[in-house]
Design a binder for these strands. Structure first.
Lengths: 257, 257
DNA sequence: AAACATTTAATTGTCAGACATTTATACTTT
DNA sequence: AAAGTATAAATGTCTGACAATTAAATGTTT
């Protein structure tokens, strides 16, 4: 184990959390290594066990460590899973969108910009498996019986697969995170049946272009999809201007479609 | 305030944290709203104060809430600042890179792919202020006296400004996060003086292209920068194969396959 | 009456010690 | 040898107390 230097100002638990976090990120504590027990840490830092615990909870919330109970238990440096990382990414992006006056148009633009960058790579690299996955989602979307929620989920999946098709796990990660983070926004759009049809057709066109490894065509159809999304967003807003004032603004969900 | 439904399995503090987190993300608790005091929460959830505290610490670690002391203190739903969000993004990306076998090439590709997407927008939208900021960083990079660390920091700043030049705060956010997250990787590259010169020249070429609003030229120079970065990375690795064993071995680890 | 000082109340931060729960290991019994 | 049992070590939770901080109420002086 390493020596933690002593502590001075600001909340004790915060300082302890920072000390350990730094040790992890700087690599002094490697993945799966076990930290000293809470009792030992509290002696080492000369604080009570509760204080150490609060520090550990902070780190656990960031997925940096994981606590196991029992005789050979303790706190271990966590090998973060892809899912945990993605959840964390999504949370961060959503907070960023929700609390920093990000306009709907900006969010859409950011997402489609990222996706169009992915498309360039995906068109050259997509595997047959990727293509099959895309087709599977398309079929799902075409089945008229699925709910709005399922349609949106399938939409998220479709675009995540495009990210995956780049063959670059980091790009796939960012792409999937962005798409999922914006799902609540997309959910606000009313998907009438006709809209679904149009969207699914554009998805199909993109899949075709990827199959043909035709990046230009893929871009063109993605651009069409982006415009159409903006159009739907405008439609949803414009009529309201003359209509009755919207009660909440947050939860649209017009009764039934 | 809202009613929290009662709790059953899994760690109590985790459940409580989840309950409150959900309330925040779903908008039942709005920004700057004050949560009940720890004492009240512990009554409401029928757990001890320590348990509630650990839950709150978890949320605080995710920047979801902030605790203030004193008479009118308490836990408040946090309006996350841009910097906090970015720090969180950077941490997540770094964990993802460090713990999920992301190759150097993949990281570089992801970063330059994102940046090239930004360049297209930035070429049309960059303000004169953005341009001035880019020039300022260039001048800084040209002053031969700065340290390696400062050079890297300026490099990060330069590319973040490109993200900002898109005029899209969300893209800027993602771009800055990606660049900063990869700084440790870039730092591994030895920057000889000649390298710096070359890099700065390419930066200047990009800035010129942005000034001329010439997206194609900007892409071309960014591509050159990407290639050069890959080249440096290769140089750094290849000679080692015949040389003495590397002390640390933090990155490679092909030892056993 | 206004400015300043003091007390008070509410709230989070920390501490200490106890008990409950979980889990691996060592031991005992069959 | 296998199965069951005790044991020890660790985290999870509870309880109650005190310290530190802050805002507001209260009191005091000019």
């Amino acid at each position: 184990m390493i020596e933690f230097s002593s502590i001075r100002k600001e909340g004790l638990s915060v300082q302890i959390a920072n000390a350990i976090r730094t040790a992890i990120i700087d690599g002094h504590l490697v993945v799966e290594e076990r930290l000293p027990s809470e009792a030992e840490l509290s002696e080492r830092f000369e604080v009570s066990r509760s204080t150490v615990r609060e520090a550990l909870k902070r780190l656990a919330a960031q997925n940096l460590i994981r606590s196991e109970r029992g005789s050979s238990g303790g706190a271990f440096v966590n090998r973060i899973t892809h899912d945990e990382a993605q959840e964390s990414l999504v949370t961060t992006l959503r907070l960023m969108i929700g609390m920093n006056n990000i306009a709907f148009e900006e969010a859409i633009e950011s997402r489609f910009t990222l996706e169009s960058a992915c498309l360039g790579l995906a068109a050259n690299r997509r595997s047959d498996d990727d293509l099959a996955d895309l087709r599977a989602e398309l079929q799902h979307q075409r089945s008229g019986s699925i709910s709005d929620e399922d349609f949106c989920a399938s939409d998220v999946a479709f675009h995540s697969i495009i990210g995956r098709s780049t063959g670059n796990p980091l790009l796939a990660f960012q792409m999937a995170g962005a798409v999922e983070a914006m799902q609540p926004l997309m959910n606000m759009l009313v998907y009438r049946l006709r809209d679904r049809q149009r969207i699914t057709d554009l998805h199909a066109a993109i899949a075709d272009a990827l199959e043909a490894k035709d990046a230009d065509a893929a871009w063109q159809h993605l651009e069409a999809l982006a415009s159409y999304t903006r159009e739907l967003a405008d439609q949803r807003r414009a009529p309201r201007l003359n209509g009755p004032k919207v009660g909440n603004g947050a939860a649209p969900e017009p009764a039934s479609v």
